[in-house]
Each structure stands twice: as structure tokens, then as C-alpha cells.
Amino acid sequence: ARLKAAAALSPGLRDAPATAAQRFHLDAPGWFAPGDPPPAALAPLARAVWSDRPVTAAYRDRRRTLEPYGLVLKAGVWYLAGRVRSRFLVFRVDRFGEVEPHEGVFERDPGFDLAAFWAEHAAAFARSLLRETVTLRLTEAGVRMLRHVADPAALDDALASLQPDGTMRLGVESVAVAYSQVLRLGPEAEVLGPPELRALLAGAAARMARLYEPREEAPGDRPFGAALRPLGDP
């Protein structure tokens, strides 16, 4: 679709879509967050990105000189992909101080792909959050449900570790996060370790069992549905 649109443009504008795609990438899916005003450094960095000008700027109380390659908006937060010497790094735009553009321009790496670079960075960041590992035994239904419960970054490795008896190792951010995830699997999952998580789930299961224990109706009690009548009944 992009190639067809580019072919319809006048010769002087046909390079514009590719040029823009290598400088600005919108990562649309995100989490709900209040709409904050754009950071002060966004405008000068955007101008530097568009004109291929190196900048010197304060970043986390340190002066840095870098080549700004592209901007990414992720979940309401702006990030800059830039090259420092020969390394491509990611910076949060709201952590920049004063930005000073240079007079000359830098030569862009023709092999740099902003969208691919960001996807790789985002995947590595998501994996870095998985600091704990839990061991589960899942039913077939539990395995099917796992993709709706686990962190996407942990799913492939978890499925690759699946044993014939349903045992698997699942990467999680913390025991507290694992508790909320495994609880959603209900009776389709058994926690084998760590013991702390198994104890938390055992306690939750015991409390839930007490909630659903059969009990005798007190005189005058009626099922909830019996108190409802169709509209129009006298």
C-alpha cells in the first residue's frame, strides 16, 4: 500500500514516505494514561531528526552528543532513537534538558530501520522485566488459556518448556504478579514452585471453597432469581 501511494506522488515527493518512516514511528497500542503536555525537548529534537543534525544536550545531568535518528511515541511517552559513536540507543525525551543542534549534518546509516529497531528494543525491555520463574502443571485447557494470562514476552519460552505431563516454567515479573496471573487460570493450573506462590494460591483456593460451601436456607430466604419478575407482571 505504501509503494502504491508513493507511485501516485509527483517525482519530487516519491521519497517522502520512506524518509518519514525512518524518522517517525508511531507505536499505537498502549496503556491508559493521563494526557500530559509534550516535553519541552520534543520540538528541537524533532527538528534535528528531520534535518539530520547532531545535537548536544543534557540528559540525566550529563552532557551527550548524539545523532538523532527517529522519534517513537509509545503509550503517551516520547522516545528518541539516536546513535552515540557507533551504538544505537534509546532515550526518553522528557529526560532531556536544553538541546543544542549542530551546524552540520550527519550521514545516516542506510541500513537503519526505525520500526525494526524499536520492536527489538521493546521486546528486549519486556524480557528484562521477567525477573522470576514459576513452575506450573497445566491441564490442556490451562495451556490454551495461558496466552490470555501470561506476559507476551514470556509465552514462547513457557510453551517451549512444556512437558508431556503439563509441567512448564513461566517467566514472571514478580511473585505478586504471578499470583494474579495464575489465579485467573483457576483449577486448570497447579503451582509447583516457588513455595511462597503455592501457599498464596492454596490460601486463595481455601477462601473460595468456603464461599461456595452449601448452606441451609434461613426461613423466608429465596434464591436471588426468585425475587425477579418479568416486566409487566403485577
Rank of each mutant, 00 (worst) to 15 (best):
L3G: 10
L3M: 10
A5L: 13
A6Y: 08
G12L: 11
L13H: 06
D15A: 15
A16Y: 10
P17H: 04
A18L: 07
A21D: 06
A28T: 13
P29S: 04
P29I: 08
P29Y: 03
D36L: 15
P37D: 13
P38H: 04
P39R: 12
A40K: 10
A41H: 05
L42I: 05
A43E: 10
A43Y: 01
A46Q: 12
R47S: 14
R47L: 11
V49P: 06
W50T: 08
S51E: 14
R53D: 05
R53L: 06
R53V: 00
P54H: 11
A57Y: 02
A57I: 09
A58N: 04
D61M: 11
R63T: 15
R63Q: 14
E67P: 01
G70K: 10
L71H: 07
L71R: 07
V72T: 11
L73Y: 05
A75L: 03
A75I: 05
G76I: 05
V77Q: 12
W78R: 06
Y79C: 07
L80F: 07
L80N: 02
G82E: 05
R83W: 09
V84I: 10
R85I: 08
F88M: 06
F88A: 04
F88Q: 08
D94G: 03
D94I: 06
G97R: 09
G97K: 06
E98Y: 01
E100A: 08
P101L: 06
H102S: 14
E103W: 01
G104V: 01
V105K: 11
F106V: 08
D109Y: 07
D109I: 03
D109N: 15
D109M: 11
P110Q: 04
G111P: 07
L114I: 12
A115K: 13
A116H: 11
A119S: 13
H121W: 14
A122L: 08
A122D: 14
A122H: 07
F125T: 15
F125Y: 04
R127V: 09
L129Q: 15
L129R: 14
R131Q: 13
R131C: 02
E132G: 03
E132H: 15
V134G: 03
T135Q: 14
L136E: 04
L138F: 01
E140S: 10
E140W: 00
A141C: 02
A141F: 07
G142W: 01
R144M: 09
M145I: 00
R147C: 10
V149W: 04
A150I: 04
A150Q: 06
A150N: 03
P152M: 09
A154M: 08
A154S: 13
L155F: 09
L155D: 05
D156F: 02
D157M: 02
D157T: 12
A158P: 00
L162F: 08
Q163S: 10
Q163F: 06
T167D: 00
G171F: 05
G171C: 09
S174N: 13
V175K: 02
V182G: 05
R184K: 15
L185F: 12
G186E: 12
A189E: 02
L192C: 08
P194I: 01
P195A: 11
L197M: 02
R198G: 04
L200M: 15
L201Y: 02
A202G: 03
G203L: 02
G203P: 00
R207W: 00
R210D: 01
R210F: 00
Y212K: 00
P214Y: 01
R215P: 02
E216A: 14
D221C: 09
F224D: 08
G225A: 12
A227H: 13
L231H: 10
L231Q: 10
D233A: 14
P234D: 13
